[in-house]
């Protein structure tokens, strides 16, 4: 499910390969990795927020509500902070075609 998944298989394959070089300049490389981070962030969030599924529902081993709230809101704050940091780097300049890759 990437932006170029379809075009990579389709007719656009050949020109695309010509257009984008195999190895990128250092800056472009860094920008690509930040995009990767932006893609990874929601996956990380989903994983962290799935942790409560592991918590026991039985009364004796149950997690206390204060701990649960602290954990969930803590993840929330970290995600928002990480998104803020990424948004500083994901400037307008990255919109050129092929940035999906």
């Amino acid at each position: 499910m990437t932006d170029r998944g379809e075009s990579g298989r389709d007719a656009g394959a050949a020109p695309e390969r010509i257009k984008s070089p195999l190895f990128l300049h250092r800056d472009s490389y860094r920008r690509r990795r930040i995009m990767d981070a932006a893609r990874f962030l929601p996956v990380l969030g989903l994983l962290l927020w799935s942790v409560p599924l592991l918590w026991s529902a039985a009364p004796e081993g149950a997690v206390s509500s204060s701990a649960a709230l602290t954990y969930i809101f803590g993840v929330w704050a970290i995600l928002a902070l990480a998104a803020f940091v990424l948004s500083l780097y994901l400037g307008r300049g990255e919109d050129e075609p092929g940035s999906g890759g």
């Binding site: 893609r39 962030l41 929601p42 969930i72 929330w76």
Partner: peptide, 20 residues
């Protein structure tokens, strides 16, 4: 209990994953 949180967690994930 905490079920109400799920209603906000989903949209938060969508916004954080805006690049997708």
């Amino acid at each position: 209990g905490f079920e109400y949180l799920t209603i906000y967690l989903g949209p938060s994930l969508v916004m954080v994953g805006w690049w997708w």
